[in-house]
Amino acid sequence: MANILAVVEHRQGAVRDITYELLTFGRKLAEKTDGKLTGVLLGHNVDNLTDNLKKHVHRLIVADHDVFKDFNGDVYQQALADIIKKENPFLTLIGNTAFGIDFCPSLATHLGVPFTTDCIDAEIADSGIRVTRQLYDGKMDTHMKLSESPSYMLTMRSGTCPAEEGNLSAEMQKIESPITTQPSYKKFIEYIEAAVGDVDITKADVLVGVGRGIKEQANLSMVEDFAKAIGGVVACSRPIVDANWLPKDRQVGSSGKTVKPKLYIAVGISGAFQHIAGMKNADTIIAINKDSNAPIFNEADYGIVDDLFKVLPALKSKIMELKK
């Protein structure tokens, strides 16, 4: 019987999508062995979040304290160390997000629990844990077995287990916060919204996402022309921002914006998971890339395996024709 603990990730009053993915995944894993899934919610004035969470877990532990008002990895680590010691779960699940990776590795080390990060799948095997992870820029998958232990900890990559509707009605257990002040050596100050420029890519119906494949900054103007013709806005993957070709507020992906346009045209984007995470919920995805093995084709509805410098101008003129 494997009892599983999952840490609820929330920010600025809202539960983050990764949480429901984790809870769906954790519940399935627990139920396979007649175990229970317990959610842990650390927050302040979070009563409004619990109703939906209770549908996804067998039990919900809530510690309400203003030390949890905002995120501080160190505070989470101390509180969770206390809770995990008491709960003694077989497995603790955490999102492989900016939130989870800030405390999971150090927390597991502190507790002496075998752990690994950025898993895309996990199973209970031979009374231990076997995970699937991706290596080498996502070009290889690996199966890894964690060292034998009564307890494990994993961070799961977002987007690898689709969230399902919950139908449970968990009992809720309010606990005293094991920690009441932020440590002096690491204090949360504030969240800063990245400066929003002239365009907001999260509001556009049509996005043309460009990646490494456009090769040169000079080629951006061709993509911009195309976007204009189709009435869309240019967004991009991380390398384009790293090269300073477009501002940060145009970046789609886990470290940029999450977008949900009606149409996303990925141009010269290979489809690193970080980028996919930000655009996979677009209604329609069309990918243009000359590498037929590019992972983007696993996410797209339509794929064009050809040179973007040939396809884009041709597509632009066809669209102009249809507009007439």
């Binding site: 996502g138 199966h143 077995k145 995805i285 084709f297 339509y302 794929g303 064009i304």
Partner: peptide, 23 residues
């Protein structure tokens, strides 16, 4: 913490419908 058991090329997911022909 972990032992690598095997490496393999990731299985392809839902594939896009690939449009073929001239540009």
């Amino acid at each position: 913490n972990s032992t690598l058991e095997e490496l393999f090329v990731p299985p392809v997911g839902k594939r896009a419908e690939i449009l073929t022909g001239s540009a």
